[in-house]
Amino acid sequence: MVSMQTAIQIQNVSFAYGAKQVLHDVCMDIPARQVTAYIGPSGCGKSTLLRCFNRINDRISGAHLTAGSIRIHDVDINRADIDLQELRRRVGMVFQKYNPFAKSIYENVAFSLRVAGKTKRADLDDIVEDALKNAALWDEVKDRLHSSAFGLSGGQQQRLCIARAIANQPEILLMDEPCAALDPLATLKIEELISELKKQYTIIIVTHNMAQATRCSDLTAFMYLGKLVEFGPTMQIFENPKDPQTEAYVTGTFG
């Protein structure tokens, strides 16, 4: 891990929703162009931490970092002068419930590009095609790009959301339980896509599905009660966890 380039440096991060402290002194370096999975029981803080990486927690009243820093390319992303729109372009996000816009397949991918000022049709066409190809969706939708996104299957809608995120050429892709609402085959397609996408992007995934973490992540972090309990190569976490709490959680003897 030492030799890998670091995508995100998390230094002594504590975070609260109002008076409720939900993250406690989390420290870890997330390597670039690897898949890092967060596992842990509900309420352990893994999604909160993920949402700190593009500051969408800011939208929740009272949510704030109480200590520490999160740095991307050595820049503290909680600095007052950070351009949030640019941060969220660089750090894309895919949610548990696929949420395409009520627009065509094409417009779903092109929308944020238009917002960012790209309006030349030829450029948009190229970017949309590339994004859909990278999201392994192009072959399935190329003949109906202007149909409603809602006509796609759940798995296709989620891949469209991934295409929408990568159209902005992010560096980091956050995935918050991206397969929770999908059937097993659609899940495997997303996992296959993740292993392709990590060649270009740093991927951070929150999952409750431990088999998924073992299948598609390079590193796994186990969180419990707002603390990072253990972080290491996925094989080590699932073959020989060092911490008894991690052992208890992954083997299902927890609690």
Binding site: E239, V250, T251
Partner: peptide, 10 residues
């Protein structure tokens, strides 16, 4: 059936 891991897998 259970996909054992860690000490269970071993």
């Amino acid at each position: 059936r259970f996909h054992p891991v860690a000490s269970d897998l071993r």
